[in-house]
Amino acid sequence: MEQYLGIMLSVLGAALAAGWAGAGSAIGVGIAGESGAGVMTEDPGKFGLVLLLQALPGTQGIYGLMTAFLVLLKVGLLGGSPLAVGIWQGLGICFACLPVAIAEYFSAIAQGKTSAACIQMIAKRPEETGKAVILPAMVETYAVLALLTSIILLNSIKL
C-alpha cells in the first residue's frame, strides 16, 4: 500500500505539472489568438508575425510536459518497471512539481496577455516586430526559472 501511495503521489505531481501548465498555455495562446484573429481580419498579411507571438505562451505547456516526463522516468513508470517509492519520497516529488504547475499556469496567461498587446502593436507598427517579441519573452524568464527549480528539486530526491 505504502509503495503504491508513493508512486501515486509522484503521478499526481506529474499530472499537476502537465495539467496546470497545459491549461495556462491554452488560455494564453487563446488570448493571443483572439488578438491575432482581430488583426488578421483586417490584414491577413501579418499571419507570420501573429503566429510567432501567439506561439510564445505555448512553451509553458511544453515545460509542464517535460517535468511530467522527468517524474515518470524518475519513478520508472516509463520503462515499465516502477521503482519502490516511499510516501515521503512521493510527497517530495509531488511538491517538486508545484513550481512548474503554479508558475507555468500564471506565466502562460500573463504571457498571452503581453503577446496579445504586442500583436496589437505590430498591427500598428509592423517595423517594431523585434521589440514585440522581446516583451512577452521577458515573461518566459520566470517560466524557465520555475522549470529549473522543479528539475533541481526532482534531482535532489534520492530513490
Binding site: S35, A37, G38, T41, A116, Q120, K124
Partner: peptide
C-alpha cells in the same frame, strides 16, 4: 482582445 486588435488594424 479581438475587438481592440481589429480596431488597431
Amino acid at each position: 482582445g479581438y475587438t481592440v486588435a481589429r480596431l488597431r488594424a
